[in-house]
Simulated scan of single mutants.
Amino acid sequence: MRFEEQEQTENKQQDDKKSYFGWLFKFTTSALIATVLLVAGTLTVFNYNESAESTPKKVNATTEDNTIDPTASNSSVVQAVEKASDAVVGVVKYAQSSLLSENSKAGTGSGVIYKKEDGEAYVVTNHHVIENAQSLEVILSSGDKVKAELLGSDPLTDLAVLKISADKVKQVAQFGSSEDLKVGETAIAIGNPLGMKFAGSVTKGIISGKERTMPVDLNKDGNVDWKTDVLQTDAAINPGNSGGALVNIQGEVIGINSMKIAKEQVEGLGFAIPTSTALPVIEDLEKEGEVTRPYMGIQTRDLSSISNHHLQNTLKLPKDIQSGVLVGGVQQGTPAAEAGLQKYDAIVQVDGQKVKSLVDLRKYLYEEKSVGDSIEIQFYRDGQKQSTTLKLAK
């Protein structure tokens, strides 16, 4: 019995050793296989990344990968300039036209050829460029000098129209819509800063603001006689650029460069007369030599520029009236005086249309009405809403 028990014990120990070595072999084999697979996978990933990095990436100006091709933008600007630049000219003003003094220039500005017809071409420029000129000369982009005739000018919008021979005129500008512009759009100024030495200079920026108004001092006595509508841009506009073109990315003229704010603490504030304002004036100046406008006979101020305290306590307006036109004064013998308007009346509607500002009022009068037309004005006086009928004069 003892022998059999000992034999059984020895057999059991041998079986245990076989089981242990079998397990150790399986474990070692599995670990080796796992290691090989891990190393192989690592090498594969490494080789893939190395190949991807060494392969040049193609960048396209598409919306799929949200990349931008700067050359496409530059090309558009170049094309816009090429489309408009030859229509931008120099305008030279001479103080006297005698033989001995004809070379004494009184000033140099810019202009835009906008029309060519029956052997003649027409140029729009600024009123202040040609003001007090004894004679005028236009210098084409080719350098040719052409005598110019002044057809008419308008100090309120700072515009003037000249007529020249079309013999050497190669290009006519195309006008675009300033009303469709959006703030942030590309704006390109073309003109002759500091005279013809830098003729045809191009500067690029954006439309910084729309429906701005700039004061006009007709008598140069420090009093504001008018406010003209302008586009604001940060495209550099310098002396000599006046009368030149402000164009969009399609090469269309959207404004006539007019002025800049030149102060030490100010940068990038240039202004142009929008085509929506300029085109009707250009047409009148070309055909009539002057601009005929409907006239009310009042001095005005935007209600939006007045504090709430005065709106409610001084003018006694309802709280919901925050915009309109305040009558600052009424001239005797004018349509406004005959209609019974008084100082401090607050105009809020004309012919049932809301008037939010002086720009709104002028836009309606100049684009929708003519001299001799009658308009119905709704206004507040001492907190009471009233109305009157006014017949527009010249």
Rank of each mutant, 00 (worst) to 15 (best):
N60S: 13
N60K: 10
A61G: 15
T62S: 13
T62Y: 05
T62W: 06
T63G: 09
T63Y: 09
E64G: 05
E64M: 08
D65L: 15
N66T: 01
T67Y: 12
T67Q: 14
T67W: 10
T67A: 09
I68S: 14
I68P: 14
I68T: 14
I68A: 10
D69P: 12
D69N: 15
P70N: 02
P70C: 01
P70V: 01
T71R: 10
T71W: 09
T71H: 13
T71F: 14
A72E: 15
A72Y: 04
A72H: 02
S73Q: 08
S73D: 06
N74Q: 12
N74S: 10
N74I: 00
S75H: 06
S75T: 06
S75I: 00
S76W: 01
V77Q: 11
V77D: 12
V78T: 08
V78K: 00
V78C: 00
Q79Y: 02
Q79C: 05
Q79L: 10
A80P: 14
A80L: 04
A80Y: 04
V81N: 02
V81L: 08
E82I: 03
E82C: 01
K83P: 11
K83S: 12
K83N: 10
A84R: 00
S85H: 11
D86L: 07
D86T: 03
A87N: 09
A87G: 08
A87W: 08
A87I: 04
A87H: 10
V88S: 09
V88D: 15
V89D: 09
V89L: 07
V89R: 13
V89E: 07
V89P: 15
V91L: 08
V91I: 10
V91A: 02
V92I: 15
V92P: 15
V92C: 08
K93V: 06
K93F: 11
K93A: 06
Y94W: 03
A95V: 04
Q96T: 12
Q96L: 05
S97F: 11
S97D: 14
S98G: 13
S98N: 12
L99Y: 12
L100T: 03
S101L: 13
S101F: 13
S101I: 00
E102V: 06
E102C: 02
E102A: 07
E102G: 02
E102L: 08
N103D: 10
S104P: 09
S104L: 13
K105M: 12
K105S: 14
A106G: 15
A106V: 01
G107Q: 03
G107V: 08
T108A: 14
T108S: 15
T108H: 09
G109C: 03
G109H: 04
S110P: 15
S110H: 07
G111R: 01
G111S: 07
G111K: 03
G111W: 06
G111F: 06
G111E: 12
V112P: 14
V112E: 00
I113R: 00
I113A: 02
K115N: 14
K116S: 11
E117V: 00
D118N: 15
D118L: 04
D118M: 02
G119H: 05
G119E: 12
G119W: 05
E120L: 11
A121P: 13
Y122D: 07
Y122C: 04
Y122A: 02
V123G: 12
V123W: 12
V124E: 01
T125L: 08
T125G: 03
T125K: 07
T125H: 09
N126V: 03
N126A: 05
N126D: 10
H127I: 01
H128R: 02
H128L: 04
V129D: 07
V129Y: 12
I130P: 12
I130K: 00
